[in-house]
């Protein structure tokens, strides 16, 4: 695996700037590519006076091969969710472009499926109804919608809870419904915005394992956002560490653990796991120190 760095901003003097990876230049079979992506928010000042420009992302470059489980790791407020919104087409980049299968993202679409931290389930619909809802624009036949929705809810282990409303389900189960919904859409790309941040630690581990298994079996390309180092190491093929203000990829760290090894109970005690974990921790700590220093 090659290591690549994000392009630096206008006044950047980082020695690593513009050291793009060879893979990136060669083109390769990339599912998701971000090239020099920037996003600036205009925030109106108090009492309507003046407009403050906030740079959320600057010169973010990233290439994700088909089938990769890619985790973006960064502290809160580093712009990682903003980046995911851009990939989802929910917002427009102010610079650069994002390509899915080589085509620029023009807006939201069912070629990408999103999973949100807050589940985003319709409270008035059952688990089944929530998954069917996502299929309404894709499948005209009601019965086929029901079949597909049932199939994916069974896949995530909720076969017994088809008729339950979100308020009758635990946090972990709600997120399973949301994952079933994302899978049912049938897109190659899964975009996950801190999906397990709101569930308890034990449930999180079970969900992580299931997600890893399902994503692998279905051959999904996953872009997963988290601020948890452990989650990143456990899930990722490669981890992009993001630094804040403005958000850019600081370093990409490959995780040299095989798929089989991850499913073993002692993976977290293994040498490569500890090594990657430590490397990520170092990278995160630099930013934490920076943030603390800048107030």
């Amino acid at each position: 695996m090659s290591i690549e760095y994000g392009g630096d901003g206008a006044g950047g003097a980082s020695p690593q700037a513009f050291a793009f990876s060879q893979d990136c230049e060669a083109g390769g079979d990339y599912k998701i590519r971000a090239v020099g992506v920037g996003k600036t928010f205009s925030v109106r000042g108090k009492r309507g006076k003046g407009v403050t420009q906030t740079e959320a992302l600057d010169g973010l470059t990233l290439s994700i091969p088909r089938g990769e489980f890619h985790v973006i790791l960064g502290p809160s407020g580093c712009g990682k969710s903003t980046f995911l919104d851009l990939v989802a087409g929910l917002a427009k980049a102010t610079a650069g472009e994002i390509l899915i299968d080589g085509k620029p993202v023009a807006g939201p679409g069912t070629d990408r499926a999103m999973v949100f931290q807050q589940y985003a389930l319709l409270p008035w619909k059952t688990a089944l109804g929530n998954v069917e809802f996502a299929l309404e624009g894709l499948e005209r036949d009601r019965r086929r919608r029901r079949e597909t929705a049932t199939k994916y809810l069974e896949l995530v282990g909720l076969g017994e809870f088809l008729g339950h409303h979100p308020f009758e389900l635990s946090g972990g189960m709600k997120q399973r419904v949301a994952i079933a919904r994302a899978l049912a859409i049938g897109s190659d790309v899964l975009l996950m915005d801190e999906p397990f941040a709101a569930v308890d630690a034990l449930t999180r581990e079970v969900l992580q394992r299931d997600l890893l298994r399902i994503a692998r079996e279905a051959g999904k390309t996953v872009l997963f956002i988290t601020h948890s180092i452990d989650e990143a190491v456990f899930l990722a093929d490669r981890v992009s560490v993001m630094s804040p203000r403005p958000g850019r990829i600081k370093e990409i760290v490959p995780v040299p653990i095989s798929r089989g090894d991850r499913m073993r109970g002692d993976v977290k005690a293994s040498e490569p796991y500890a090594r990657v974990r430590h490397r990520l921790w170092e990278l995160m700590r630099e930013d934490a120190a920076q943030i603390a220093a800048s107030g």
Binding site: L90, G107, T110, A113, M114, Y119, L122, W124, G137
Partner: peptide
Amino acid sequence: ADPVLVKMSRSLGMGRFQMFYKVMLRGAL
């Protein structure tokens, strides 16, 4: 209306009218 639900519907590529009818109106009931 729950902004997360609106965001979710948009991510599904749902049009403005459909989203209003299926998510916002229903949520306002």
